[in-house]
Write a protein that binds this DNA or RNA. Structure first.
Lengths: 333, 333
DNA sequence: TTGTACGCGTTATCAA
DNA sequence: TTGATAACGCGTACAA
């Protein structure tokens, strides 16, 4: 905040009224050509910029959108933030971003903050936001604001979910591994979100279908420390030495697993096959490169933004969308 | 935007005036205890939330900060965004984030947008923003707003730079490699930013000091495609088959290099040592784990925010700060 | 084609 | 301790 020049200052210097200045700024048709030129000149000379707070107040639209993410550092949704911000930006919206953590109460707090900031649309990055506390906060504080949730679904007249079929993706991975003769498959997951739960379900159902209903070995490790996943991998092999394939709930932890396997001299994929999930950019440059289930982050993110933008335009959008999820085979299987 | 309840609605329901409601909301002292209780009750019953736009307009402070980053997907500053947002949030500020790309004109455009949104502080993530176009835009559009630049420096009364000593960090790496008997060192860099330039300078001066002024082999690859860096690594070895150590300007491209070396059967570190830069979380789980120069992203990000927050509090802050940069040795050297 | 007057939802200054 | 009233900077009927 400074010695900001207002439309009144401009008006005075141009010898017109404030409303005329406003008309010029907003490209109103019926303004005298010379008047417009004169005002534009003064506007430029003074580096005038509109005060968005004032504009918002009278027009009742903030041209702001909100992005909520648990933690930009650790979730693969980080890249999604780029697509979402970029698309909003291209449509004239500025994005407020918040790292909310995984606690529903805390997440709900940010829903309220978004309402306070009068954002016109919201995108929730990831299924961590798929919980009743958040759902309720939306009902109370943002009942008329289109809210999209990436990789999740919640019931609500203004909530638009778009999910990747991770359940089916993991099943495909199981099928692939079974087809390659793997007998003893395991699954290692981090923090249980709805998304991770459906991956686990896909794993179990996959075993039933493709592995003669072999007993599902599933490890859940709820930790932010990557070392814990290296330990878990080793522990898994200690408990089940005949494991010949491991599917991880995320590429990042698959890489950690790969690292610990390599450390104890286990050959990948000869002895143990490894599958990640996200198809992140790190999967293709790891050693060995990582076979990964692609949960279509790019597509789900983009569809999420476009859905809320379409709703803002008054269009109709399906409240629940899902897209297929493929597997990208590389050297680790 | 909806059927928002205002302080007038609350006032009416509580049987008091709007100003009293405002006083309660803002915790003014001289309000009758029972009046306050009554107002608070009505406030809660109606899920009242303040309109920030209106508040901003009269108080002349937006409680918003701006974060500019070239591309959250591809710069290692992504993690910095977390620290910056988190710290701002803890101090009551909401963060507007924009992906600006590397074109100075475009970056400057966002400076203007930030001014329009009346942000109270700005953090620029990375030395890509260290250019005269941005510097000038700040002078014109944000002359009184504290601006911090992470890993860079620009002259200006309200610009606060904090850099890691990457020059010295790379020199240390050269020293380490020379100490291990490496004779033929090379450096591969991506897009030339001021930061990358100083890394290259450190490389050259390091060779002069520790490698008997060996001729510096430097490759610059300006591409967003990671495959180009794999190719560059192979090309380097073709042109200089006796290369026995490569320093990369970032971990991510070092990992790509590692991958291509591995692919053609070159042993790391036996035949070629590899050093990355950033000390990212991927360095410790790669195969082999990656020796990396730590440019203190956590520290520089946090110092950047804290500097602008301190300025907002009226405190004095050095406009130019630098912190040491260490090397973390792992299996790749 | 232009200017006047009012309102957006708050906080701040007065008087009472 | 409380309530009018006037800003904050802008957009927009309405009148001219």
């Amino acid at each position: 905040m400074a010695q900001d020049t207002t439309i009144y200052d401009i008006a005075a210097k141009a010898g017109v009224s404030a409303s005329t200045v406003s008309r010029v700024i907003n490209n109103y048709p019926y303004v005298n050509k010379e008047t417009r030129a004169k005002v534009l000149k003064v506007l430029a000379e003074n580096n005038y910029v509109q005060n968005e707070a004032a504009r918002s107040l009278v027009t009742q639209n903030s041209k702001m959108a909100g992005i909520l993410i648990a933690d930009v550092r650790t979730t693969h949704h980080t890249e999604g933030v780029y697509y979402v911000e970029h698309e909003f930006s291209n449509n004239g919206y500025s994005c407020l971003i918040y790292n909310t953590g995984t606690d529903p109460e805390n997440q709900a707090k940010y829903i309220q903050i978004l309402s306070q900031r009068k954002v016109e649309a919201v995108v929730l990055m990831g299924s961590v936001f798929q919980n009743s506390t958040v759902q309720n906060a939306i009902m109370v504080y943002l009942p008329n604001t289109p809210v999209a949730i990436c990789n999740g679904y919640m019931d609500g007249p203004n909530i638009y979910g778009v999910t990747a079929d991770e359940y089916g993706g993991v099943m495909k991975a199981v099928k692939l591994l079974a087809g390659k003769g793997r007998k003893k498959l395991a699954f290692i997951s981090n923090h249980i979100t709805p998304s991770n739960q459906s991956k686990i379900d896909g794993f179990k159902d996959g075993l039933r279908l493709y592995c003669n209903a072999a007993e599902p070995i599933v490890m859940e490790v709820d930790s932010g420390d990557i070392l814990e996943f290296e330990k878990a991998t080793l522990q898994l092999l200690k408990n089940h030495p005949d494991t010949d394939a491991i599917i991880f709930s995320e590429d990042y932890i698959a890489l950690a697993g790969l690292h610990s396997l390599c450390n104890i001299g286990i050959k990948v994929p000869e002895q143990v096959a490894v599958v990640g999930l996200n198809n992140s950019k790190y999967a293709e440059i790891s050693n060995p490169s990582l076979t990964s289930i692609d949960n279509m982050l790019y597509d789900t993110s983009l569809i999420a933004v476009r859905n809320v933008l379409e709703v803002l335009r008054g269009g109709h959008v399906n409240r629940r969308m899902s897209i297929g999820s493929d597997i990208v085979e590389r050297s680790s299987t």
